[in-house]
């Protein structure tokens, strides 16, 4: 499941855990576990994402435009890319 998950993340272009769960035919919780496992083993890296959560907007009226919840980003590491390349070679 982990290899398929990594490949699916790579193909999808964006990460939507429900969509990945549907695609892999696995429950969402298991997909979430898969992410954690891939991160633990160094195939996938989490990135804090951008937003202005800690920024000192204070009471500024324009602050409502700020991305209050950071957009979570993922990155397939070099180790992950190697794995994907190997998988492709193996067919």
């Amino acid at each position: 499941m982990l290899k398929q998950l990594l490949a699916a993340i790579n193909d999808a272009g964006y990460v939507s855990k429900p969509a990945l769960a549907a695609e892999l035919g696995r429950p969402l919780v298991l997909v979430e576990e898969g992410f954690a496992a891939l991160v633990r083993m160094g195939y996938l890296a989490e990135d804090a994402g951008a937003g202005c959560v800690d920024l000192p907007c204070g009471k500024c009226p324009y602050a409502s435009m700020c991305q209050k919840e950071p957009v979570q980003m993922w990155k397939i590491t070099d180790k992950g890319r190697d794995l994907l390349a190997n998988m492709q070679r193996a067919g």
């Binding site: 994402g49 202005c52 602050a63 435009m65 950071p70």
Partner: peptide
């Protein structure tokens, strides 16, 4: 792509917009 998030923040105010680039 992450750049666009700092740009959206800039629609509000460029000060946090510039700061939001820290995540790059």
């Amino acid at each position: 792509g992450k750049t666009f998030i700092s740009m959206i923040v800039g629609f509000g105010c460029n000060v946090p917009g510039v700061m939001a680039t820290r995540t790059l």
